[in-house]
Each structure stands twice: as structure tokens, then as C-alpha cells.
């Protein structure tokens, strides 16, 4: 007789295999569409790489802007770009398409949770994007070598925690937002609008320390800062330990809030959902 209850053991094994299989399917999907992934990477890369050029042209002989030397500034955008590839979540489009085209009903019949499916799809794409981004990162770092300064970069546990936290925050705020497709017929404009606060507050546009105090105060409390800007600030060694702890705490808070919102929107939304496309 095994020490552990056999059934329990089997079901754990069974679940792990099930999720591994689903992940493999998503990974194959991401692999099949790698050209598409390269284009999505470029759509993040091009605007983010113009910004350091703008700042370089703005120093006009000064040593720093908002505490950033020209070298720090270029490093900031490059690191943000790398983090974006690992973190930034766009699952709301998939959720809306699932719902609009009736695939959602099929998912409801299957024996696995929709949120876990959604997360595995997101994870597979992020891994694919990160791998494809490595060569692009090297080329860009080479091209920008003249104005790049890495000295302050701290690749330690605080950064890895903040990075994984950012990855989860991005998913757990985007997922409930995507579930709004259960409530509205047309979501395209709403989703496009979403990217405005995302872009401003997640640090892709500019280091948040350059913001005027009022906007910076807003950034402290909205979830977007904790997706990309916060791990980037930790990585560049810009935050004192108490700020790092506070940031990690905010990440946990937003993950919990996002999950709760997801559950609530799911329960109420399913009652309204009538299965379009069946």
C-alpha cells in the first residue's frame, strides 16, 4: 500500500499532465505564428526605441534629466522593452473573440477552468516573445552602445520577484477587463482606450520619476505601474528597500483584487451569457 492515498496522487499527476498538454498546444500555436510574434515585438520596439533618441536630443549639455544620465536613459528604455516582452498581457482580445465567435460555449463544456487556460495561452506567448526578442535586444544594444550605461543594473532576487509579480499583475488586471466582453457587444474601442492609461502609467513612455508630482501620485496607486515600471526601477537599482517591499505588496494587492474581480465578473457574466454563435 502506498503511503499517500493513491487516488489523490493519481489526480495530481493527472491534472499536471492535462495542464502540460494544454500548454504544449498553446506553445505550438505560438511557434506556428512566430512571424506574427516578430511583428508584435517590432510594434513595441520601434516606439520605445524612439524615446531615448528624443531624450538624447533634449539634454542640451546638461548632465542629467530627472536623475537620469543619457546612458541611464537609454538603458531604461532597453530594459523596459525586455520586460514588456515577458510581462505585457493582451488576453482581452482572445477572450472577446472567444465570446463573439461562440468558442466560449465550447470551453464551458470542457473539464478545465477558463482562467487557467487563458493564463497558459498568455504564458506560452510570453515565452515565445522573450526568446524571439533576445537577438533583437542584442542588435539594439549594439546599435545604442555609444549611449548605454549598465553599471547600476542589479539582477537579484528582488528584481526576479518584481518581474514575476509584474507578469501576474498584468494578467490579473487584463483578464477581468476582457470578461467585460460578456457584458458589452462591441468592445474594440473600449480595449483600444485601455492602452492609453496602460502606456502612460506602465513606464513605457517615460520613467515615472519624470512625471509631475500629481501624476506620479496617481501612478503609485494604479495597477499599471506595477507591471513594467516597477520591475524596471528595481532592476536599475533606483528604489530603496522599503520602496521595493511596498511595491511587492502592491503587486500582491492587485493580483488578489484582479482575481476577485475576475471571479465576480465571471459569475455574474455567465448568467447574462446566452451563447452567441451557437
Amino acid at each position: 500500500m502506498p503511503v499517500l492515498p493513491f487516488r489523490y496522487n493519481q489526480s495530481m499527476w493527472h491534472a499536471a499532465r492535462k495542464w502540460a498538454r494544454i500548454f504544449t498546444v498553446f506553445a505550438q500555436d505560438a511557434l506556428a505564428y512566430r512571424a506574427v510574434a516578430v511583428i508584435w515585438i517590432l510594434t513595441d520596439t520601434i516606439p520605445t526605441l524612439v524615446m531615448p533618441l528624443i531624450w538624447q536630443a533634449s539634454y542640451n549639455g546638461r548632465a542629467t534629466i530627472g536623475g537620469f544620465t543619457p546612458g541611464d536613459m537609454t538603458a531604461y528604455y532597453l530594459l523596459v522593452l525586455g520586460i514588456t516582452n515577458m510581462v505585457q498581457c493582451h488576453v482581452m482580445w482572445e477572450i472577446a473573440t472567444d465570446i463573439k465567435e461562440g468558442r466560449f460555449s465550447a470551453y464551458l463544456m470542457r473539464p478545465f477552468s477558463y482562467i487557467a487556460m487563458s493564463y497558459l495561452g498568455f504564458l506560452a506567448w510570453r515565452i515565445m516573445r522573450t526568446l524571439l526578442f533576445v537577438p533583437i535586444f542584442l542588435v539594439v544594444a549594439f546599435l545604442y552602445r555609444g549611449t548605454l550605461r549598465w553599471e547600476d543594473v542589479q539582477l537579484g532576487w528582488p528584481f526576479l520577484l518584481a518581474l514575476f509579480g509584474g507578469h501576474l499583475v498584468s494578467f490579473f488586471i487584463t483578464y477581468p477587463f476582457g470578461l467585460l466582453a460578456l457584458y458589452f457587444v462591441e468592445t474594440r474601442s473600449l480595449f483600444n482606450f485601455w492602452y492609453i492609461p496602460v502606456m502612460i502609467f506602465n513606464g513605457q513612455i517615460a520613467p515615472l520619476t519624470l512625471f509631475p508630482p500629481a501624476l506620479r501620485a496617481v501612478a503609485e496607486w494604479v495597477p499599471f505601474r506595477y507591471t513594467i515600471a516597477f520591475p524596471a526601477e528595481v532592476l536599475m537599482g533606483r528604489l530603496p528597500p522599503d520602496q521595493v517591499w511596498r511595491g511587492l505588496g502592491m503587486q500582491v494587492l492587485w493580483i488578489v483584487l484582479g482575481y476577485a474581480a475576475g471571479v465576480a465578473l465571471w459569475r455574474r457574466g455567465l448568467k447574462r451569457f446566452t451563447g452567441v454563435g451557437l
Binding site: 505564428y33 512571424a35 506574427v36 511583428i39 508584435w40 517590432l42 510594434t43 520601434i46 516606439p47 524612439v50 533618441l53 528624443i54 538624447q56 536630443a57
Partner: peptide, 26 residues
């Protein structure tokens, strides 16, 4: 590029470069 369904997103991104002064580029 038959399988690429986000060509217009790439076009958009490239076009957006036009809103910056060309003098900032190397």
C-alpha cells in the same frame, strides 16, 4: 506574407515615426 495577419499594426507603428523630428535620428 500570407500568414501574417498583423501587417497593418506594423504599418501603423512605422507611420508613427513620422510624428518625431527627423533630426533626433543618427
Amino acid at each position: 506574407l500570407v500568414r501574417i495577419d498583423n501587417l497593418s499594426a506594423l504599418t501603423d507603428t512605422i507611420v508613427f515615426v513620422a510624428r518625431y523630428p527627423p533630426d533626433i535620428f543618427p
